[in-house]
């Protein structure tokens, strides 16, 4: 855990400007909505749902590109030549993909609460959406890390985002776990209406699903060659 954190710290620092910029995205969107005076409640809700999807897409794209970047820069061999196992290394990538979401969600939370206040609405739904994003972020991160082990960066990003979209469809069919959790994310009202009763179970199942994807990624990565140009 400690080693994964040490590596993740370096990777986060490496991409710090991009992540900080993304953190401000919810504020920028909130300002855009407020430019014409008091924002429309439907517009605010629509924007919050879009931001939720953007947060997950951020994790999916980051998670699916990190491994390829580290291969290309060959920094991966400077890490894996030390006493670091492949699962530890992948866990550091998962942390690197997920932790910026925490920053992003903090922006989402603050800007969302401000907008809810402007609409004179309660903002329980903002908290539900924020927590759902963080839980789903673990799952989306694990899915994207899995695909990054098997596919080139661009394909891995497309497939990871497609997996998130597919999970929404599966959720509509009444499936539990990440699918229904995604529906929670996209159907919750600002005041907290429409939140399913089984959200706690779905959150646990989503984390478990993330664990399964991560285990599959670790198992696969431990049995594969690093993609290095050999002499």
């Amino acid at each position: 855990m400690m080693k994964a954190w040490l590596i993740a710290q370096r990777l986060l620092w490496q991409n710090r400007w991009l992540f900080l910029m993304l953190m401000f995205w919810p504020y920028v969107m909130a300002i855009v909505l407020c430019v014409g005076g008091s924002p429309d409640p439907d517009d605010v809700l629509w924007m919050l749902h879009q931001e939720c999807f953007a947060g997950l897409a951020l994790v999916a794209v980051t998670g699916s590109t990190l491994l390829g970047n580290e291969h290309r820069s060959r920094r991966i061999i400077m890490v894996l030549a030390r006493s670091v196992s492949r699962p530890q290394y992948l866990f550091s990538l998962l942390l690197t993909a997920w932790l910026p979401l925490v920053l992003y969600v903090s922006g989402f939370l603050v800007s969302g609460i401000v907008l809810a206040k402007m609409l004179h609405s309660s903002f329980e739904g903002i908290f539900v959406m924020a927590l759902a994003q963080l839980v789903l972020g673990v799952w989306a991160g694990a899915v994207s890390v899995f695909w990054s082990v098997l596919l080139p960066q661009i394909l891995a990003s497309i497939v990871s985002v497609a997996c998130v979209g597919l999970a929404v469809y599966i959720g509509e069919l009444g499936m539990i776990g990440p699918g229904r959790m995604l529906l929670v994310l996209f159907e919750t009202a600002i005041s907290g209406g429409n939140v399913g009763a089984a959200i706690g179970v779905d959150a646990v199942l989503t984390l478990l699903a993330g664990g399964v994807w991560f285990a599959a990624a670790s198992w696969t990565f431990s049995r594969r060659d690093l993609n290095l140009t050999a002499d």
């Binding site: 490496q14 920094r75 400077m78 890490v79 030549a81 030390r82």
Partner: peptide, 21 residues
């Protein structure tokens, strides 16, 4: 390795990271 590459940071940071790992 033949072409070592590093994370952003100082020389002592790089050596300490290798040690910690």
């Amino acid at each position: 390795p033949d072409s070592p590459t590093y994370f952003a940071g100082t020389a002592s940071g790089a050596v300490e990271l290798a040690g910690r790992l």
